[in-house]
């Protein structure tokens, strides 16, 4: 029995809940997926997902109840965390924006990478494409990039899971999994299954 939380402050939480439930079913795992917003709901989780949305909003809203410090404590216990798009930005040690440059937004600073926000441009330039993700097998994964960030610098212990041409778009650093795109906007449960396997310490 595993309990997975989806951070519910803002963004596409329902999509993450649905696909995580499907992934549990695919792996025949018993578990529950909860939308979590407060420190007491986050402590004790077996895994936490940080959704797509606006990373600046997460920083702002989480400060009220100190949600970020609870997530940091969770990570220090090596509880697996999975972030997509805004989730990746929230994990990153360094963040800047392609248009406005240096930005001073609160992040968790847990992931040893530098992330460039809005790397691919505005919504008009958002796209979907087939990605090769070796850890998920040969079948391409549909990468849905929405005003997506990219990972520009990689630090210690960070494993690259996928690139779009030479741009790094998915990484893992021990208990932390992060993608610049949105697996939750597809029906393909493989990334969420991979996250569940990290929780089960099968990978």
């Amino acid at each position: 029995m595993v309990t997975i939380g989806v951070l519910g402050l803002q963004g596409d939480l329902e999509e993450h809940v649905d696909i995580t439930e499907n992934a549990l079913e695919k792996l025949s795992l018993k578990g529950e997926v909860l939308v979590v917003k407060k420190p007491e709901e986050i402590e004790g989780l077996d895994g936490l997902i940080i959704t797509g949305g606006e990373s600046t909003v997460f920083g702002k809203v989480s400060s009220r109840l100190n949600v970020f410090s609870t997530i940091k404590q969770l990570s220090s216990k090596k509880v697996p965390l999975f972030g997509t798009c805004a989730g990746l930005i929230v994990f990153a040690r360094n963040v800047y924006d392609r248009v406005v440059g240096e930005i001073n937004q609160p992040t968790l600073g847990l992931l040893n990478v530098t992330v460039s926000r809005n790397y691919f441009g505005r919504q008009r330039e958002s796209f979907e494409t087939d990605l090769l993700v070796p850890i998920l097998g040969d079948k391409p994964f549909k990468g849905v990039f929405i005003r997506a960030p990219a990972i520009e610098e990689i630090g210690e212990n960070v494993e690259i899971l996928a690139r779009l041409e030479d741009i790094v778009v998915a990484v893992r650093q021990e208990n932390i999994l992060a993608t610049a795109f949105h697996p939750e906007l597809t029906d393909d449960t493989r990334f969420h299954e991979y996250f569940l396997k990290i929780i089960l310490q099968e990978t």
Binding site: Q10, G11, G53, E54, R124, S126, E128, V144, I146
Partner: peptide, 16 residues
């Protein structure tokens, strides 16, 4: 500009 990319953008605004 696919349906998924357009509706997906709106999904990222949810709860905001």
């Amino acid at each position: 500009g696919t349906v998924r990319v357009k509706r997906g953008f709106a999904k990222m605004c949810k709860h905001g």
